[in-house]
Amino acid sequence: MMHIFCPYCGELREEEEFHVKGQAHIERPKDPEACSDAEWGDYLFFRNNPRGVHHELWIHAVGCRKYFNITRHTVTYEILETYRMGEQPTITGETKADPTTQAKGVSA
């Protein structure tokens, strides 16, 4: 249950108010008819699946109903930043070293 800062409401709200909509910054090609089948297939079907920093599109569904972006660490579930549509992330996989270390473990 994450605690998410909505950049439009300006507050932290419970995860239950939000829906995730997949990878952020997938731009629809401006001229789809000029795309090759492979390019169009990339746009439709291919997404990143990083172990680490990821940019995601979310909607504050029970709230302002605005779409916005979250930079989230997929291992630690840290939310590193949230930002409005049209803005770019300030934190990327390159700017943030992966803080998690591999360890052998017992789970109970």
């Binding site: 360890a103 052998k104 473990g105 017992v106 789970s107 109970a108």
Partner: peptide
């Protein structure tokens, strides 16, 4: 060395 414990 043997590992750590993770509880759920």
């Amino acid at each position: 060395d043997t590992g750590t414990t993770v509880f759920r």
